[in-house]
Amino acid sequence: MSALSASIIAACARGLAGPSVRWVNCRPATRQRVYFANHTSHLDFVVLWSVLPRKLRSLTRPVAAKDYWNSGLRKRIAVNAFHAVLVERGSKTAEGDRTAAARNTLDLLLEALGTENSLIVFPEGTRGNGLEVGPFKSGIYYLWSRRPDVQFVPVYLSNLNRILPKGEFLPVPVISRVVFGPPLKLEKDETKESFLEKAHAAVCALREA
């Protein structure tokens, strides 16, 4: 039932977004991956998920913000249909609880990855204006440091902010683009700063692809 509703929602999203998809030096594969993308719209994870080949979809779980997706219809869409992992956002928690919350989030993500799943994450942590890619939060680095065996695949989404911009609840059809890039190449002892810099640059590089 949930697989069916996810497919229906994905089909609607494809109808609105008519996404053209490119895989640049990267191919769809069932191996474990973390897809990390720029974030401009609530539709982002739905569209990204919907352009994956069918057999990858059931293995790929989006990561979404608990404060937005945890009630009513939204919860049904995110959790029941897409098996999203809901996490607390750093900015929405009190200062003292930050570390505990971050650790809790990381545990949730590691658990969701398990031994065969992939994740969709938006390391900016909040929706941007569609012009620039904002700075990445460090969670993605800690995820990598615990699971360096997983491929980190950059994705650039364009035009989705025009379909459902921040603050709007009714969508407008606009043709979008989803570009998958080559998995990050990382050293064993990558520092947090250099990891985040490489990851950010990898997403931005796909803008012109």
């Binding site: 008519g18 035009n159 025009r162 911009p165 709007e168 969508p171 407008v172 606009v174 043709i175």
Partner: peptide, 18 residues
């Protein structure tokens, strides 16, 4: 949809487009 995608529209046009 093709036409709107090609020309530039702004955030303030959203509801008119709807």
């Amino acid at each position: 949809r093709e036409y709107i995608s090609l020309i530039s529209t702004t955030r303030a046009d959203h509801r008119t487009l709807f």
